[in-house]
Amino acid sequence: MTDTQFTQITAAVTRSKGAPFTIEKAQIRAPKADEVLVKIVATGMCHTDMIVRDQYYPVPLPAILGHEGSGVVEAVGPLVKNIAVGDHVVLTYGYCSQCNSCHTGHESYCQEFYPRNFGGGDMEGKSAIQDAKGEPLHDHFFAQSSFSTYALSLESNTIKVSKKAPLELLGPLGCGIQTGAGAVINSLKVSPGSSFVTFGAGAVGLSAVLAAQVAGATTIIAVDVVPSRLELAKELGATHVINSKEENAVERVKEITGNGAKFALESTGIPAVLRQGIDALGSLGTIGVVGAPALGTDASFDVNDLLLNGKSIRGVVEGDSTTKIFIPQLVELYLQGRFAFDKLVKFYAFEDINQAAEDSEKGITLKPIIRISDHV
């Protein structure tokens, strides 16, 4: 390729296991086929970015991470049909559109989910980005790699959104916020008048609290160990909060609900907390598991408690979302004042990305959003 076929970019690069992000100059090729080149306005930072940086999930390095991008379409490939230059978009996860899961509306369980989102390149193993020395940087992280001023996505994971909404806020709808809200609405199907408890009141857990309120749950419980998060949970619609450092969470949930919760969500990735969530369910209760520990992590439960009470445990990826429908729905709920996920976020300048990561890991910031480029 000649230089004229590249766009100059600035990207946050992860060069080795656990290393800080480094801001570097690089270049990205033009979009081909059904690809979309997006000028990134802002990108949310998610727990998954950190566990990949630290190689709990073995994405090849050096890489450009970032998977909650929002921005403006700059160019499209010749096969793109429904996305146009100038559209405001949110970037979400990649999927093949061809397997049985995709054909039945369960794209987040795509048979190619791992290689498309964690493979470090396209499906041929190739990168679209070169560093300043002309060396390839692993990209296509969640089919976007949006810790960068420009990103290449596919039409399928590029979600057009209303220009009425603040674009720099919307990126986390592509993963973290979608995961918590979708777990409640799509996976668990929390029903009006029911009880719901989230074990973990981070960005995902509090998104679930917001969604439980939208779904009509009348008992909404948040469990965490950070008092400020519990206070925010009450502000966002939780009817009860439990500090599990100070109280027995299982006993308290059963006291509040009378029998145990109808629905629960575990977002911490800690096996002992998952056990608490299962134990806190009532008869025929269901818990969704979204917390991601290291690969190979085991957890335990009482088999007879599960059996005799008809309890269900189910894994949830990306909130079981049909993204082209669900993400615009969340945007509309936000515009109507019914889904105040803006209360979860704090903005950081691009050069402060490592501070954002540190604040997130320390629990100081629930959902960092990195401002990447100016948007007029």
Rank of each mutant, 00 (worst) to 15 (best):
H240K: 10
Q98L: 14
V80W: 00
P166D: 06
V72H: 05
S360V: 11
L335S: 10
E332V: 11
G69P: 09
S267R: 03
H106N: 15
I51T: 15
A272Y: 09
V316A: 05
V303T: 14
A280G: 02
T104L: 14
N100W: 06
F142R: 07
R116D: 00
A128I: 09
A183D: 03
C102W: 15
T2E: 13
A340L: 11
L206T: 06
I242G: 02
F118T: 02
P227K: 12
A201R: 01
S127G: 09
E235A: 15
A280T: 00
G66I: 11
L281K: 08
A272V: 13
G134W: 12
I64A: 04
G44M: 14
E74M: 04
I64K: 03
I364F: 14
G282L: 03
V59C: 12
M123R: 10
F339C: 03
I325T: 10
T257F: 02
G94Q: 07
Q8L: 14
L230K: 08
F21D: 00
N248I: 10
L236A: 04
T7K: 01
M1L: 09
V331Y: 00
G125D: 08
N117Q: 09
A151P: 11
S148H: 06
A356D: 03
S187W: 00
C46A: 14
T14F: 05
D342E: 12
V184P: 00
R229N: 11
V38E: 05
I64M: 13
Q178Y: 11
A203L: 01
I364Y: 13
K324R: 09
H240E: 06
C175K: 04
L188Y: 01
L274T: 00
D122S: 08
V290R: 06
Q98M: 15
I364P: 01
V72I: 10
V52S: 04
K81Y: 11
R229H: 12
A299Y: 03
L330G: 02
R371L: 14
V376G: 12
A181S: 12
M1W: 11
C175F: 08
